[in-house]
């Protein structure tokens, strides 16, 4: 595949956008540590992915490995020690291969790595690659990139239902003076929310394709995310919200797969009976 063709694929779009964010955020923060972390995360992700696929004789998706590494480096603070960046990448890739249904990951691998790294390594996640430390006008980059990705993977119902529910619930929290809604409406938290909804929520293997299911996925993720934010605060709320959505998507796939098997069985039985009757 040529570069021109690759860049038009959804994974090509996401990779190009995330790389450009890495460059913009590094220039804005005048620090090259984030790029260094990006290289470490991608390399480690590649090594673990290669070894696992070799052991299990499986095919590996190099694009998704790069994307996972990029997510990790853009979300973890660029001052994070390299060992922790590497550890997070290893967890993410292992979850991609171990927590699967029909060879597809159930949970967003980068989100699993990042959530577990909070508890295992006590990582400080700054979402610096979402321009959380840069002037507010840089959010425009997130919106433009996010619009292009969401359109490319056809996930507008999911993103819009997530953002709509998320902001309505936060507005209610603000009006009732519950929790810390003020922070969630402002940088760097609004940057994190937009980056998350445009790039992580829309991951095709871990989210539904049908519009009705996309809307439910978005609402479920937003409600659970806001609940976690309201009760516990911290930075885990987006990931936990996403996992609830991922579980819903997994259950949907399982039930529709069971229904397909059932229909096929009925069809086979019917065909066998008809052929027997014809023989008689």
């Amino acid at each position: 595949m040529t570069i021109q063709k690759w860049i038009k694929t959804p994974k090509g779009y996401v990779t190009a956008t995330l790389v450009s964010y890495l460059i913009i955020a590094s220039i804005g923060s005048k620090n090259i540590m984030g790029v260094k972390n990006g290289i470490i995360a991608i390399c480690l992700a590649f090594v673990v992915d290669f070894l696992y696929c070799r052991m299990k004789n499986r095919k590996s998706s190099k694009d998704s490995t790069v994307i996972t590494g990029l997510f990790i480096s853009l979300i973890l603070s660029f001052t994070t020690p390299w060992q922790i960046v590497a550890g997070t990448a290893v967890i993410a890739i292992l979850s991609k291969h171990l927590l699967v249904y029909k060879k597809k990951p159930i949970f967003n691998p980068a989100a699993v790595g990042l959530l577990l790294s909070i508890f295992i390594f006590q990582t400080g996640q700054s979402w610096w690659g979402a321009f959380g430390d840069l002037p507010a006008w840089t959010i425009i980059f997130l919106v433009i990139g996010g619009y292009l990705i969401t359109d490319r993977v056809n996930k507008f119902p999911q993103v819009l239902s997530f953002l709509g529910t998320f902001f309505v619930l936060l507005l209610l929290m603000g009006m009732l003076n519950v929790g810390n809604a003020a922070d969630a409406f402002r940088p760097p938290f609004i940057n994190a929310t937009l980056f998350f909804s445009f790039f992580m929520l829309t991951d095709p293997p871990t989210s539904p394709a049908k519009y009705k299911n996309q809307v439910l996925f978005g609402i479920l993720s937003a409600v659970s995310g806001v609940l976690v934010y309201g009760i516990f605060g911290g930075l885990t709320y987006l990931f936990i919200g996403l996992f609830i959505g991922n579980i819903y998507s997994y259950l949907q796939k399982r039930s529709s797969s069971k229904a397909t098997v059932l229909t096929q069985n009925v069809k086979t039985q019917y065909q066998t009976r008809t052929s027997r009757n014809a023989c008689r």
Partner: peptide
């Protein structure tokens, strides 16, 4: 969504 966000932003400005 932008309207809800703006309402939320201004509602929580004092906080």
């Amino acid at each position: 969504i932008a309207a809800v966000y703006s309402a939320g932003y201004y509602t929580t400005e004092s906080q």
